[in-house]
Amino acid sequence: MNAIAYVHEQLTGKKEFPKFKAGDNITVNYKIIEGNKERIQSFKGDVIKKQGNGATASFTVRKISDGIGVERVFPFYSPNVDSIVLNKAGNVRRAKLFYQRKRSGKSARIREKRQAVETTE
């Protein structure tokens, strides 16, 4: 095993997150510290980017808050990322959705991926 992977494995605990990719709508629950109290805040939006690998991997979530686009970058292995909930799988053709920054309103919608449903006959 190479050294970087070894160090990463030794220092970061395994985290179980649902598999998601660019275009998916997720809710990230992350810890914030107010004074000396810790609480969990959530950030819900579309994933526009996943980047990097190993300990340095991160993803960016974009949402429209009061008409203003807000983006937040979360490192995958940050101890402050508590959990991730996958709300909707999106149907997109790119891995990086930076074109979303120029869009607003109806054109900024992401189609939901249609899942195959098992029929019982």
């Binding site: 970087i4 160090v7 300990a55 101890p79």
Partner: peptide
Amino acid sequence: VGMTSIFDPSGKQTACTI
């Protein structure tokens, strides 16, 4: 060997060299 980054318990990410 190379670079990576580690987190401290408060979530601060530090770049480091192995």
